[in-house]
């Protein structure tokens, strides 16, 4: 026995392995793996620094850079425009928060209607299909214009006429069309065997959807769902075209008065900052779920 990989498992007098068996780890092998990991970190840090330095050097060397720096990256204007843009961002956040909840409810309802096979639902099913076709095919900006300027003229009783209200409604209608397709794809991606298993246990169609299919579908569509919501966060800026002063409009106002566009950079940074928590939260959520439900592996 000239096994180079390490000592053989200890045996008791009868020749059987002692239990519990202590896992054996080759220390040299572990050291090698750790060395490789340290090397990888060094390489990625160096490569990032070089990459950024080259990019900055290139942009700074361009003939127009001094002018651009003055107009877009002016620290004085950054400080001066910051308060008004941040304050206006609060409107974006409120529109987003309300729209997000309504979109989730409406889009899930549409997806379920489109997947239902109950005969009396036919007209509702047809309407849902028409709705998705219409709003996916129409630019969101156009919907915002049409609803905000058009609907108030109908003088609907007990319905607010404010631009913020109708612009939010436009976002909800437009995005629900997209998100309902995400839900529908998620639901149909759950293997039919899951439904068969649920039905053999005596669960009704509705119970099967509620307890077996939907929970799996929702977990699967969380990444594309958050993709759509990242997009929605930015599209709250579309509200600006019909008047309300949200972050984008506030930045524009500052630029018009001061002839400096640094305020737009402020708005851009704020929109990015807004989207980061959601993105990180999703990553964490998905990792946790994976860890809980599946066996580990190297890949």
């Amino acid at each position: 026995m000239s096994d180079p990989s390490g000592p053989a498992a200890p045996l008791d007098v009868s020749g059987a392995p002692l239990s519990p068996v202590v896992p054996y780890v080759d220390p040299e092998r572990i050291a090698k793996v750790q060395r490789k990991a340290r090397n990888n970190i060094t390489i990625s840090v160096v490569s990032t620094v070089v990459f950024v330095a080259v990019l900055i050097g290139f942009i700074a060397s361009l003939p127009g850079w001094p002018a651009v720096q003055k107009q877009f990256f002016n620290p004085t204007d950054f400080k001066a425009s910051f308060p008004s843009v941040v304050e206006a961002l609060w409107l974006n956040i409120r529109i987003f928060a309300v729209a997000e909840v309504l979109i989730l409810i409406l889009s899930l309802a549409i997806a379920l209607v489109r997947l239902s096979r109950v005969p009396w639902m036919l007209p509702i099913r047809a309407a849902a299909t028409g709705y998705v076709d219409f709003f996916r095919g129409t630019p969101t900006l156009l919907v915002v214009y049409l609803l905000t300027f058009g609907v108030p003229q109908l003088q609907l009783p007990h319905v607010p006429n404010s631009a913020v209200f109708w612009a939010t409604v436009s976002l909800v209608l437009s995005y629900s069309a997209y998100v309902s397709e995400v839900f529908r794809a998620g639901i149909t991606s759950v293997h039919p065997a899951q439904q068969a298993a649920a039905r053999t246990l005596g669960l009704s169609n509705t119970q099967t959807m509620r307890y077996v299919v939907l929970p799996q579908a929702v977990r699967r569509v969380i990444p594309p769902l958050l993709n759509d919501f990242a997009s929605l966060q930015k599209d709250t800026a579309l509200v600006s075209v019909v008047g309300p002063v949200e972050a984008m409009r506030a930045a524009e106002n500052y630029a018009n008065v001061n002839f400096n566009y640094t305020s737009f950079i402020v708005a851009a940074l704020l929109f990015i900052a807004l989207s980061l928590p959601v993105a990180r939260f999703t990553d964490r959520l998905m990792a946790k779920q994976r860890k809980k439900t599946s066996a580990g592996g190297a890949l």
């Binding site: 065997a193 899951q194 068969a196 298993a197 649920a198 039905r199 246990l201 077996v212 799996q216």
Partner: peptide
Amino acid sequence: RSSIGMVFQQYNLFP
């Protein structure tokens, strides 16, 4: 169906 149990080749547990 609730009075007839069925078990499948691929288990079909709810993951």
